[in-house]
């Protein structure tokens, strides 16, 4: 599977799981669908960004760092818009970014060389 598609899939799945855990927080349970949707989009963006990065730079440590940074920034923006839950949103969001960064570097297939 190519790196961008792999990043997109893993980002979406982990983002959805991440959003789904909001069910355990009764205060936000009413907005669960919106949270899952938003979290999935966040995971998708992080996954695609990590996938594109992995196509340009072939390094697992740099991929993890990049994923961490993207996950952190996206999660921070979401927490900022929520005006709270910084720790609960930023920590898992950053780790999702890290996982996606690792997976795209380690398991994504490099694009085939162009042939004429």
């Amino acid at each position: 599977m190519n790196k961008v598609l792999l990043g997109l899939l893993i980002g979406a799945v982990l983002g959805a799981i991440d959003g789904g855990t909001a069910w355990f927080t009764p205060a936000v349970r009413a907005q669960l669908v919106g949270i899952i949707f938003g979290s999935t989009i966040k995971g998708l963006i992080a996954g695609v960004a990590a996938g594109i990065f992995a196509r340009k730079v072939n390094s697992v440590p740099l991929g993890i760092l990049f994923g961490l940074a993207v996950g952190f920034v996206l999660a921070y923006l979401v927490a900022y818009m929520q005006h709270g839950y910084y720790f609960e949103i930023i920590l898992p969001g950053s780790i999702v970014g890290m996982i996606v960064g690792y997976a795209t570097q380690r398991y994504g297939a490099a694009p085939a060389p162009a042939t004429r």
Binding site: L14, I17, D18, T21, F24, T25, F87, E88, L91, P92, I95, V96, M98, I99, Y102, A103, R106, Y107
Partner: peptide, 24 residues
């Protein structure tokens, strides 16, 4: 084949559970 990745996901889920416990 996917040991590290599986362990990473498991660690993530464990961390998620810990956050939930911490919140409650």
């Amino acid at each position: 084949r996917y040991r590290f990745f599986i362990l990473l996901i498991a660690a993530y889920l464990a961390m998620r559970v810990l956050i939930l416990l911490f919140m409650h």
